Amino acid sequence: MEHRKKLIHVTKMPIRWGDMDAYGHVNNTVYFRFMEQARVEWLEDLKVEVRPGGDGPVIINASCTFLIPMNYPGQVEVRTFVGAVGRSSCQTYVEMRIEGDDRLYAEGAAKVVWMDTLTGKSVPLPEHVRAVLEAE
């Protein structure tokens, strides 16, 4: 990915036997779960509460490029980066590797938008979130 990006979160999670499909590798849908879990952990680290009736982050698009198949057993290291930061949104990027292997197994992206869940309209990023995203 040829974007300016800043590392904001790193986590590891196990590959489970049930994550594999009939081809014997991690199913493509599971990669989106890895990215989701990493994003949730990052938001929890920022003390962002996701709750009905309030403002919160939503994903308006997500993508993943599968470079090398993952297999059970293993630990996935998910690195989350932030790119462009706007009034109410930020672009995130993800790199997935297997612990102990420097090769890039998958890369993904998701645009996160802060939204008022009652109106469905975007709202400005919370100041404490913006401060972290824009810090050098």
Rank of each mutant, 00 (worst) to 15 (best):
R4L: 03
R4H: 06
R4V: 02
K6P: 00
H9A: 06
H9M: 11
V10F: 01
T11R: 13
K12Y: 08
K12T: 12
M13P: 02
M13D: 03
M13Q: 15
I15Q: 13
W17V: 13
W17T: 07
G18C: 12
G18D: 08
A22K: 14
A22S: 10
H25M: 11
N28S: 12
N28F: 08
T29S: 07
V30G: 03
Y31L: 10
M35W: 10
M35F: 14
M35I: 14
E36L: 05
V40L: 15
V40A: 09
E41A: 08
E41V: 04
V48P: 02
E49Y: 10
E49K: 15
P52H: 10
G53H: 11
G53S: 09
G53W: 14
D55G: 10
G56A: 12
P57L: 15
I59Q: 05
N61L: 07
A62K: 09
S63P: 03
T65I: 12
F66H: 14
I68C: 02
I68W: 02
P69W: 07
N71E: 10
N71W: 08
G74N: 14
V76K: 14
V76D: 02
E77T: 13
V78K: 06
R79H: 05
R79A: 04
T80P: 00
G83H: 03
A84H: 03
G86V: 02
G86I: 03
G86F: 00
S89R: 09
C90Q: 02
C90T: 05
Q91T: 01
T92E: 04
Y93S: 01
Y93R: 05
V94D: 01
E95D: 10
M96L: 14
R97P: 00
R97Q: 07
E99Y: 03
E99C: 07
G100E: 07
D101G: 01
R103Q: 06
R103F: 04
L104V: 11
A106P: 02
E107F: 07
E107K: 12
G108Y: 01
A109I: 01
A110C: 04
K111Y: 00
M115Q: 12
M115P: 04
L118N: 13
T119A: 13
G120H: 09
K121R: 15
S122H: 08
P124V: 10
E127G: 00
L133N: 01
L133T: 00
E134N: 04
E136I: 07
